[in-house]
């Protein structure tokens, strides 16, 4: 295990793990227009951080609990005629504010908080690595297991019903996967940039692909590339790792956005 002693290797593995799970999930986020959902769940996660710091439990568990609660509350409420996006806005920012105030009552976590807001990939420990890869594998397994059902439910809920698939259940599976990714990614890119890890690679891959499977694959490749490249940039230029990863992903997106103009013109 001497390989894992190097913090840079650990960081690379952590970034790769998060990117691999976030990218295919991000495709669903883009297809189903759940971008706010991911963003809001991530914002609420800071409340989880605050709670777990206060009760001295594992941050992963706290974040997972809050993210799940948040996600399930919103999906329940949204069925009752409330406008989802405004509801998300209200809930997410209130949870974030509550978390920040709660943190301000706990002594000595000022530095810690910044690490959770923006990620601290270079301090990933072996346990963190285990949690990250465990969570990512779980998300990937969940997505792989339900892939065609999820796809059908996304494409056309009526079609899904007739094929014996319950779209509400598939929605809930996505919600759980999203909460898992948020909990896992918080250490790597931080609360405020998780949405970028979800959306930007998927959006970039969308320009390059013709089938859903290829888009998910491309998104994973782009996400992984951004994670590794961003780390390299952070190492070379002494910039913060999480934002560097996101900036690189944005660059890839800009490049891919230029390509399909030609393809679209041809087809």
């Amino acid at each position: 295990m001497s390989l894992l002693d190097d913090f840079l290797i650990r960081a690379a593995l952590a970034g790769l793990g998060v990117a691999l799970a976030a990218a295919p999930l991000g495709c669903f986020v883009v297809w189903r227009r759940m971008a706010y959902f991911g963003d809001a769940t991530a914002h609420a996660a800071i409340l989880g951080v605050a709670l777990s710091l206060a009760f001295q439990t594992s941050v992963f568990a706290g974040v997972l609990a809050v993210a799940l609660t948040m996600a399930l509350t919103v999906s329940t409420l949204s069925g009752r005629g409330h406008a989802v996006d405004t509801l998300l806005g209200v809930m997410a920012h209130s949870a974030l504010a509550l978390g920040l105030v709660a943190v301000s009552f706990i002594d000595g976590v000022r530095i810690d908080l910044m690490a959770y807001l923006f990620g601290d990939i270079l301090s990933v420990s072996r346990t963190d690595l285990l949690v990250i890869w465990g969570g990512s594998t779980l998300v990937l397994g969940l997505l792989g297991w339900r892939w065609s059902a999820l796809l059908t439910a996304t494409l056309n809920p009526d079609l899904a019903w007739s094929a014996g698939i319950n779209p509400t259940r598939e929605q809930r599976i996505l919600t759980i996967a999203l909460a898992l990714v948020v909990a896992v990614a918080i250490k790597v890119v931080g609360v405020l940039l998780i949405a970028a890890m979800l959306i930007v690679p998927a959006a970039a891959a969308r320009n390059l692909s013709t089938t859903p499977e290829r888009m998910a694959l491309m998104a994973a490749v782009i996400g992984g590339f951004s994670a590794l490249g961003g780390l390299a940039i952070a190492w070379r230029f002494d910039t913060p790792a999480g934002p560097s990863i996101v900036s690189l992903a944005a660059l890839v997106f800009t490049l891919t956005a230029l390509i399909p103009m030609r393809q679209n013109a041809r087809s």
């Binding site: 986020v29 883009v30 227009r33 759940m34 971008a35 706010y36 991911g38 963003d39 996006d85 923006f118 405020l192 940039l193 949405a195 970028a196 979800l198 959306i199 930007v200 959006a203 969308r206 910039t239 913060p240 999480g242 934002p243 560097s244 990863i245 996101v246 900036s247 992903a249 944005a250 997106f253």
Partner: peptide, 20 residues
Amino acid sequence: LSEDSAIGAVLSVFFGFGIV
């Protein structure tokens, strides 16, 4: 891209860049 993805992408990218 639908509008919400566009918003999500822009806000996180600008934000990340700002942090850098």
